[in-house]
Amino acid sequence: MAVQPPRTLRALLTEIGPVDQVGIEERVAKYTTRSIKKASKVQALKLAVSMVDLTTLEGKDTPGKVASLCLKALHPHDDPTIPSTAAVCVYPRLVKHAKKLLRNSPVKIASVATAFPSGQAPLETRLAEVRAAVEDGADEIDMVISRGAFLAGELALVQDEISAVREACGPATLKVILETSELETYDNIRAASFLAMRVLRPGDFIKTSTGKTSSNATLGNNQVMLDAIRDFYLETGTPIAMKPAGGIRTAKQAIQFLIAVKETLGDAWLNNARYRFGASALLNDLLRQLAKEKTGAYQAPYSFTEASGSY
């Protein structure tokens, strides 16, 4: 017999309505059948480039690696018509190194904070990490929620923590990582989305995953969150932004995600203030497909810079 979700969670689900799992999966399966070609494909690819949060989150990251990542974010390719990416995403210790290169540039600096990726540190420590990152120059903070508390039904605790982090952010944009793979059901993802959105400011993000677990952003959980954003927007008028992260490696996938945005939230969300991709390998594939569209010949992946190691 299935375990009943905690009472608080059931109450929230009654209020916001559950998710039709079969319906969601059927719907997202159709996104993969759209035919996007030629000029519209080029437009979608360039839009996707401008939405990338170019990410490196590894224990072996160094200031040098972050520097090359920043340069790549500023000028992804020789082609001047290709925009720079939306942001780079690094660990808090490396924010000041990124700041040196990205000061006065359109590329923002995002930093994961709050004991990423587990979030298992005392709240005071997490808030101190957020404040330090913002002080070093981070424009955006990616926080993780306490999944354990959420699943145990301590929803008020989770929400209070998000509020506390939001306060600590000051002017910086906040992105709340739900870590969908650990929430286990679409219902929980929807509930967590609402929980976060109710304490966020317009323009703050909800984000699927850390990229550190086995399963990351999928069209399915992306759709559940987009639906939640739409319902919340219609109800309150507050536009919340969205960032799927992890597992989006190919241009084809990125276009499918954009189709989901277009068909769920409309053109207002098709810009990098409202939608982002948290990715490392994706950028190179986008550039590769843009080069293919330009030259007509399929390109080899090694013709595109790999700054170092992992991306």
Partner: peptide, 8 residues
């Protein structure tokens, strides 16, 4: 044609 031009 594709076999001829494919850079990979």
């Amino acid at each position: 044609p594709t076999m001829a031009t494919h850079a990979h």
